[in-house]
Design a protein around this nucleic acid. Structure first.
Lengths: 241, 241
DNA sequence: ATTTTTTGTGTTGTGTACAACACCAGCAGG
DNA sequence: CCTGCTGGTGTTGTACACAACACAAAAAAT
């Protein structure tokens, strides 16, 4: 829904009347989503030719996408070896989280946009998706909802550079939970716990939206990003011992 | 000094034993600097083949550089037309400045690095360059010093994502002064005034560095970025009337 | 047996020819 | 005089062949 236009068929291949720019965006979003949902786990080798075949083009139009994803820190091309999905580490991501925490607050501060009725409805829909999820917990679906929720929150600021940067940092960090949690023994318990907490976050933020206080949205978000990272670090530490 | 390795000859062309990654960085830095010093003014058309010839390669290795610069918002490739240096507008840059103001403060907050003797020396050297500059004012040299000073400040935080993002935003905004000022009648007076103010900023920051208070560095920087943009906007407004 | 060399295979990086597209000048038609 | 068309020219986008490189396995030497 997020990465596929209605016209797209299951494989990314041939779409009629698609400009080169739109195709770039499409392939870019598909690959980025795959990386963040661990369809391509860290360390995976992506062959340019395979991707070219899948999307029905030659290697050439694929390369700009890979170059961009490399600039974002999600891929790394190595001559003679392959294009490798970057590995991530909780400790290395601490700085990114620190920055995300600060930026979260700015979303409510810089050029806040009073949400219209449609946006409010989307937030409520998110609440519904959360409840459905907590009924049948699924890590992948959780990650997807989390992603959609992020984009919704991001649309609350009119500051476009801030949106762009927040998005970039989000995609740099979001894989870490799936990766860390999937290795742990109490995987299922962790997931359900995390979903519950997320559900509360969404509920809190919906309340704040109703009141119309975007500053408060920023505070809530800030708190949750910060706590989420601390939980993650604790779990990673327990695993090490 | 910033964009050329000691081995480089005047034209960017052939360098021995240079990996493809280093070459990418070199070309990237050269082009970015040229854009920000208005060697390539907004609207300029860069022909890939010309660049290829200058750097002694085919179009192929040039394209990743242009793609990256396009992702940073400095270029825009249009099929059948050319690769065009983006135009900039004071009003459009307001959001970027708002963000830069906030990030400036974070540099003193997130993972501050206590500067070693060498770094302090570089700051003092900056002071000397300022005085030399105010002796013989030159807009281009002013922009260069400003750029070097930025990089020096940026090295005060250990938060690498923050450094990267600050740099990106800096390069998005830095052209605007040269562009705006060069159109005004009191160009020379403005330049001298700006140099004086910058000199004071450097002096203030050097003091703060001496005291060892990076938080204060952030505050000073924040104030100056904010005021600098307001002056810019006023000048642009006066021009319009 | 161990180490070194060589050879083979697979991948990204590069060069080059061509396709797709935009733009302008010139011209025909009104 | 103006308008719309049409061809010519220049540019980026694409495809493909090959070079450069990394890695592993096999072979050769000690």
């Amino acid at each position: 829904m997020l990465d596929e236009t209605p016209v797209a068929d299951k494989e990314g291949a041939p779409i009629a009347d698609e400009g080169s720019r739109q195709r770039f965006e499409r392939i870019y979003n598909v690959l980025r989503t795959r990386i963040c949902l661990l369809d391509y786990p860290p360390g995976e080798r992506l062959r340019e030719e395979d991707l070219a075949e899948e999307f029905g083009v030659s290697r050439t139009p694929i390369r700009p996408v890979l170059i961009t994803l490399e600039a974002e820190g999600l891929l790394r091309s190595v001559h003679g070896v392959g294009t490798i999905v970057t590995d991530i580490d909780v400790d290395e991501l601490e700085q990114v989280y620190q920055l995300r925490v600060e930026l979260a607050e700015l979303i409510g501060k810089l050029s806040p946009i009073a949400p219209d009725a449609a946006t409010v409805a989307k937030f409520r829909a998110m609440l519904a998706r959360c409840e459905a999820l907590s009924g049948s917990p699924d890590a992948r679906e959780f990650a997807r909802i989390n992603m959609d929720f992020f984009h919704l929150l991001n649309s609350l600021t009119g500051n476009e550079p801030l949106r762009e940067i927040s998005e970039r940092l989000y995609y740099q960090t979001t894989r870490i939970w799936l990766k860390t949690a999937s290795r742990l023994s109490q995987y299922r318990e962790l997931l359900m716990n995390e979903i519950q907490i997320f559900q509360r976050e969404v509920a809190d933020i919906v309340d704040a939206i109703d009141v119309g206080d975007l500053q408060v949205v920023g505070y809530i978000r800030r708190a949750h990003i910060s706590m989420s990272f601390q939980r993650l670090r604790n779990e990673a530490r327990h695993e090490r011992l």
